[in-house]
Amino acid sequence: MPKTLLIIPAYNEEENILNTCNKIKEFSNEIDFVVINDGSKDNTLKILQENNLNHINLINNLGIGGAVQTGYKYAYQNGYDIAIQFDGDGQHDVNYVPNICTPIIEGQANMVIGTRYLDKSASEFQSTFMRRFGSNIISLFIKVCTHKRITDPTSGFRAVDKNIIEEFAKEYPTEYPEPESTVCMLCKNYKIKEVPVSMNERQGGTSSIRFWKSADYMIKVVLAIIIDSINLKKKGRK
């Protein structure tokens, strides 16, 4: 079994974080996890300390991208072979961790994305129409820019191998992390595979992408994707 780390970004997750960590512990002792407390204003830090859960406490709020990158830096410094991004709000199911790791262990992919949309029966929670619509548009632009199809580019459930851990530790798009990092890795010719997973509905807290912010988010993500792909293609030619 390769050294595996679950990176769990948490912002104001006092209701879910203990539950999530306990489920991981129940599932397997071989998987390490690190909770990145992103300057939560509630009791998240207290819960982490009292229950002696492995955590890094960010001294200031960074946003999801900066928090996740901290996890990748930690994984890089501690020599992990596989790092898995895992939400602290109970959306992701720890039982899918082996599924998501297998392609990396077998050398089929450098990065595996857990996708909600691949298998309709696999997921009870298919998310809202608007969210799917948004995902489709981002997918389309990724396809145009990189000629590869990613069905669920905004999925936060993903595993990466040692090479990509190093890449992410050095440089991680902190503004729109999921879609942008996917594009960057595609442009650098890493292999990305998608694996169907099922996600639960959020057990509490609010999604970081709110409805009224969606349009703004979409425009910026698409712009970021285009710029990233142009940037990296130029570098590739040199």
Binding site: I56, N57, L58, I59, L62, G66, Q69, K73, Q77, T174
Partner: peptide, 14 residues
């Protein structure tokens, strides 16, 4: 720069 500082300090603190 700020992001880098916060990340590195937080890891160091740990």
């Amino acid at each position: 720069k700020n992001t880098l500082l916060i990340q590195e300090i937080s890891i160091l603190k740990k």
